[in-house]
Structure formats: C-alpha cells, structure tokens
C-alpha cells in the first residue's frame, strides 16, 4: 500500500472546511481580546467612539487624497502595538477581505484617465491616484475595525453599544448570537465534513441534500433555543438581562478620546506628510 498514499492536498475541503477556518479565526480574535494590556482595560465606549471618529475622518477626504491619509496609519499601529496584537495576522485578514473594494476601485483607472500628476516624464492619471486612495482607506478602516475588536472583545462592544443607547433587546440577542456562533458553526462544520466524506466526485452536494441538511440543522437550532429558554427560566430569567458594568468612563478615557480626536483633526486639516517631505527634501536635496 506504500505506493498509493494520497497527499492531503487533494482533499483540502475535507482537511479544513471554510467553516472551520472561520471558526478558528473567530476563536483567535476572541482569545486576543482576553489579554490584559493597558489598552484592553480602557472603557470599551472610549475605544468605540474614537475608532468610529477615526473612520469618519479617514473617509471624509476627497477621492484623490493620498499623502494626508498617511499620518492616520499611527492609530491602527498604536492599537496593534499597545494591544499586543500580531500585525501579520491582521494584515493577512485585510488581504483576505479586500476583493470588493478592489473590484470596485480597479475601475477608476479605466474611467478616469485625466492626468493629474507628473513624476518626471510619466503622467499618472486621476484614476490610479483615486484607486490607491481607495485601497489605502480600505486598509486603514479595516485594520482599525479588526484591531478594535481584538483589543476590546465582542461582549464589551455589546456593553458599549448598550450604554451608548442601543436598545437592550438588541444588545442581549447580539450577545446570544455571538455565544452560539461557536456552537452552531461547530455543528455545521461536522455536517459538512460528514457530507464531504460521503460524497464522491462531488455527487450528493446538490440542492437535494442541501435542503434537508440545513432544514435539519434549523430544526435542531429551534429546539435548542427552546431548551436554552427553559434553562434560563430555571435560573430566574424574567425577560430582563442584566449586563455587568465593570468599566468606568474616567479621566483616562477622557484623555484617550480627546487626545486621539484632536490628533485626527490635526491630521485632517494640516498636511503633515507634505510638511515632513518639504523639510526633508529641503534639507537634503
């Protein structure tokens, strides 16, 4: 039998399915959020508000802006460093989700061919500049969102949403959803694995088995929800979920929010990149 060992690479779907890899990355992000750095200890509301303001400022630039976006890199880099989050992992995730922004942005060079910048003899069209700008915005906003969750944790985000005025029903079922994603995804992954192992040449993966497969999962889900509800009643659930308040919006949070927001405003209205460039080209060239 030694001659017919089949390399695992022929069955990538069986070895690790899409669900399992999603589950893994979800679990990893969750794990990162349990760290104990100074950044993790800051009230989630402060981080949430600051990050939202950051994104708002980044997308508020005109579509040909590149140099003024550069200083904004400081914020995600700060979150990744202070929160002790592996930058390589976040970068990989950014690349993985880039297709949509890329697909839309890549049309810009075709539709916008006005040359607006000359570097030596080569003219660069507005389309290319706005395309680069889109990808830069994309990297900035996505890395911030990912870093925010990795240094805050989803439960704390729900807490922040609730304290910032989101309805309680919404916050509570968001917590439920997050908790049960792990359970449901594992169950789904087992079903997919079982189907893959029983399927030859792709047979049996069509809509005929799909309906009953997901239908069964759905029925089990609904039964599970009933059991959960009964268990909750046994433990004294009265329709009200109390979310523990372990954070305080103190002086530290005030500094965090106001410091970063004023920095964003400076980056927004003063072209730091160009000032630095003039300084350097003026001194050395």
């Amino acid at each position: 039998m030694a001659g017919i060992t089949i390399p695992a690479i022929y069955f990538p779907e069986i070895i690790i399915s899409k669900i399992e890899s999603s589950l893994q990355s979800l679990g990893y992000m969750d794990l990162l959020s349990y760290q104990d750095t100074a950044l993790h200890k800051i009230d989630p509301r402060a981080k949430f508000i600051t990050s939202l303001f950051f994104i708002l400022t980044v997308v508020s630039f005109g579509k040909y802006e590149i140099s003024m976006l550069m200083p904004f890199v400081f914020y995600p880099v700060f979150l990744l460093t202070a929160g002790n989050i592996p930058a390589g992992y976040i970068l990989k995730k950014i690349l993985y989700v880039s297709p949509f922004a890329f697909m839309i942005g890549v049309f810009n060079p075709f539709f916008d061919q006005n040359v607006i910048l000359h570097l030596g003899n080569t003219g660069i069209s507005g389309g290319w500049i706005s395309f680069i700008s889109i990808m830069l915005r994309f990297a900035l906003t996505v890395s911030t969102a990912l870093a925010l969750i990795a240094c805050t944790g989803f439960n704390n985000i729900c807490f922040a949403l609730n304290r910032l005025g989101a309805p309680k029903i919404f916050a509570v079922q968001l917590l439920f959803l997050y908790r049960y994603i792990f359970v449901m995804a594992e169950e789904a992954a087992r079903m997919v694995r079982a189907r893959n192992l029983r399927s030859f040449n792709g047979k049996g993966k069509g809509i005929k088995t799909y309906g009953p497969l997901l239908g069964n999962l759905l029925l089990r889900t609904i039964n599970r929800a009933e059991r959960i509800h009964l268990a909750m009643i046994c433990r004294g659930f009265d329709g009200n979920i109390r979310i523990m308040n372990k954070y305080k919006f103190g002086l530290r949070e005030l500094f965090f929010v106001s410091g970063w927001i004023s920095l964003f405003l400076i980056f927004r209205f003063i072209n730091i990149s160009q000032l630095a460039g003039i300084l350097v080209t003026g001194l050395f060239i």
Binding site: V172, Q173, F176, L177, R179, A185, H229
Partner: peptide, 16 residues
Amino acid sequence: IPLMGVLGAFIFAGQM
C-alpha cells in the same frame, strides 16, 4: 430572545 440569537448563529453558520 434566545430564538433570535440562536437563529442568527444558524444563519451565520448556514451561509458557510
């Protein structure tokens, strides 16, 4: 409430 949460998780897993 639990039904919504768990069905949301179902949609999440089901989409994959």
